[in-house]
Design a protein around this nucleic acid. Structure first.
Length: 275
DNA sequence: GTTGAGCGTT
């Protein structure tokens, strides 16, 4: 919606939509309007908002009446720091004036061949559908929405540090899939589809197949009544966590042969024989 | 209070 108080897009016949990226989440259309209006006749300013939270998604669409003004705004406002963030102004790929592009050829007046090295790979820009966000059990192979990261942030908030480690212009989007794979890899270790829901009973779960043969009869010959055969002491765990904060694993004790041996031997606290 | 890749509504 635009701040024009109009329902939907205004009279779009020869309007040229500009895509403003990297805008702050707090930046509103009213903030962008005077900025873009200075360089041309802005027909409408639209900022897609989140369906749930209603917050800005981080980009906006500015409709210009004339393409020459729009392009001028692109050159002028592109890279301009707005609200402490450097925005990126580009011609929208889709939209009211997109038919000019979809006609079969890029009739868009935007010169991508310019110094803009923003040309990124034609990745699937299909965002996670709103209803899909609820059913995350879907193949997350292509799920890389920020919503997915939110759920991971609960147990792994390190993702941000790694993400920010690299330059924002580095790889530009392609590098993100790398982390996605990493996440999935770990998820596969202790789960299948839902990484958040891990088996609360490690004893029930099949042990490391790399160590012991997957014999069904040998699964659990001894009725261990202790569901928590953890040998790691809290104090030691804390120190280890501080050092291995980089390569911390969600379930290091389950895959550790040392722990398995200890648990297999006897879950009872035999301090005299343990040493 | 927030993330930061990214293309849109009645």
């Amino acid at each position: 919606m635009s701040h024009f108080g109009r329902s939907g897009p205004p009279d779009i016949k020869d309007t040229f939509s500009l895509l403003v990226l990297n805008v702050t989440f707090r930046t509103t259309a009213d903030d962008l309007f005077p900025l873009f209006d200075k360089y041309g006749k802005v027909v409408d300013v639209f900022i897609p908002r989140d369906r749930r939270t209603g917050d800005s998604r981080g980009f906006a669409f500015v409709r210009y009446k004339y393409q020459d003004e729009a392009q001028k705004a692109v050159e002028k406002l592109d890279g301009r720091v707005v609200d402490g963030r450097e925005i990126m102004v580009r011609f929208a790929k889709y939209g009211p004036n997109a038919e000019r592009i979809d006609k079969g050829r890029i009739l868009e007046p935007v010169d991508r061949t310019k110094g803009r090295s923003r040309s990124r790979s034609p990745r699937p820009r299909h965002r996670d559908h709103y209803r899909d966000r609820d059913s995350k059990r879907r193949s997350r192979s292509r799920s890389r929405g920020r919503y997915d990261r939110d759920q991971y942030r609960g147990r792994d908030k390190d993702y941000r540090h790694r993400s920010r480690s690299r330059s924002p212009d580095y790889h530009k989007g392609r590098g993100r899939g790398k982390y996605d794979e990493d996440r999935r890899s770990r998820s596969r270790s202790h789960g299948s589809a839902s990484p958040a829901r891990r088996s609360p009973s490690p004893a029930r779960r099949s042990p490391s197949p790399a160590r012991r043969s997957p014999s069904p009869a040998r699964r659990s010959p001894i009725p261990r009544r202790s569901p928590s055969p953890r040998r790691t002491t809290p104090s030691r765990d804390a120190s280890a966590d501080g050092r291995n904060h980089k390569g911390w694993s969600p379930t290091p004790k389950s895959i550790s042969p040392r722990v398995r041996r200890a648990g297999s031997r006897s879950p009872l606290p035999r301090s005299d024989a343990d040493d």
